[in-house]
């Protein structure tokens, strides 16, 4: 290598960067009028799971409120870029929503710099360090996991049910535990198999985990997965077993699914936007779950018998009254 060509080549590259720089430094102005909403979706908005559910809620709010709001969003944000994304969103919006607990640390860091902007964290937890302009909405996945476990135990013919979770983070592990508790609540002798793939989006591993559970007798599977759900579907379809959906009630669209839990990620996005649009938004920590109604959290058995429905209602009531206690998540 000789030095000369390199230098030329590189000065050229530097020049290219410089030229782009010349046009910069425009001053942004905040538009008056509709409520501006900025949403950070850490994963893919079409992941069939958490992120997609959040994005659906955003679209629902847009449809409902129409010209009263304008929405900007960004998906697939890595940790190294998260703070910059939040600052960019906060600089130009009235309300900033982080879809997922993984945004919490960055939101806590950015929020104090933008005291006039409202921040909401979906899947946030009750943290004493919470700044004054942030609200955290707790999904309470473990609670509905308990009900899903009960439903699975009612639907299982073999007396064995299974759960596949993605990352081993508290919300996901607690949901798995409570799913097992729920199943045992209905049928104390039930066999419960749980498994974590370490990745919400790994199709192959989710499939293998499900096949392994099927081989041990499980015939109803619950999950907290995103794209990885496709693997579980394939395994269940091959072996003639059934799946319980996790986020949205889609009864009737696919015979593979015998029941759905509703986990209101999208509902919370909608809630934050509606509250802010109506001027009633306040910084708070709010557990959603069953307490906020069927759009926030619910359990549906698609062709459920009246007895099954009654039993589910009873369990939900006991959860609400505190007769059955579950882990936070």
């Amino acid at each position: 290598m000789n030095h000369f060509d390199r230098r030329l080549f590189l000065t050229g590259t530097a020049g290219a960067a410089g030229l782009v720089m010349l046009g910069g430094l425009a001053v942004p102005a905040r538009a008056a009028g509709p409520l501006t909403v900025g949403v950070l979706i850490p994963g893919s908005k079409s992941d069939k799971g958490w992120m997609e559910s959040g994005f659906d809620g955003l679209q629902a709010a847009e449809k409902k409120l129409g010209a009263k709001i304008t929405v900007k969003y960004i998906e697939n944000v890595k940790f190294g870029d998260m703070e910059q994304v939040l600052v960019a969103l906060a600089g130009k919006n009235d309300l900033v929503i982080g879809v997922g607990g993984q945004t919490q640390a960055s939101v806590f860091k950015v929020a104090p710099r933008f005291p006039k902007v409202k921040f909401a964290i979906i899947g946030g937890n009750a943290d004493p360090k919470k700044p004054d302009n942030v609200s955290g909405y707790d999904v309470r996945q473990a609670e509905i996991g308990f009900v899903a476990g009960a439903a699975a135990a009612m639907l299982s013919k073999n007396g064995a049910v299974s759960y596949v979770g993605g990352l081993e983070i508290p919300a996901i592990k607690n949901t798995g535990k409570e799913f097992g508790n729920g199943a045992r609540y209905v049928n104390p002798k039930i066999k419960y198999i749980e498994n974590y793939t370490g990745d919400f989006d790994d199709v192959a591993k989710a499939k293998e985990a499900t096949l392994a559970a099927i081989a041990q007798g499980a015939d109803v599977h619950y999950h907290i997965l995103n794209l990885g759900l496709r693997g579980m579907e394939q395994a269940a379809r091959e072996k003639g077993t059934h799946v319980i959906g996790s986020y949205t009630d889609r009864c009737g669209t696919d015979p593979l699914y015998v029941a759905y839990s509703v986990t209101g990620v999208g509902f919370q996005v909608e809630y934050a936007i509606e509250q802010a649009a109506a001027g009633t938004w306040k910084p708070e920590f709010k557990p959603f779950g069953l307490a906020m109604g069927p759009k926030s959290s619910d359990m549906v058995i698609c062709k459920g018998t009246p007895e099954q429905k009654a039993k589910l209602e009873e369990i939900k009531k006991d959860l609400l009254s505190g007769k059955i206690k579950v882990l936070d998540a």
Binding site: R6, L10, T11, A14, D81, Q84
Partner: peptide, 21 residues
């Protein structure tokens, strides 16, 4: 891409840094 030059590294890093932003 810098082909062994330190200036090249700095220029390239700036370019990619700004590109991501």
């Amino acid at each position: 891409l810098s082909r062994g030059s330190t200036i090249g590294v700095l220029a390239g890093a700036l370019f990619f840094g700004f590109l991501r932003s």
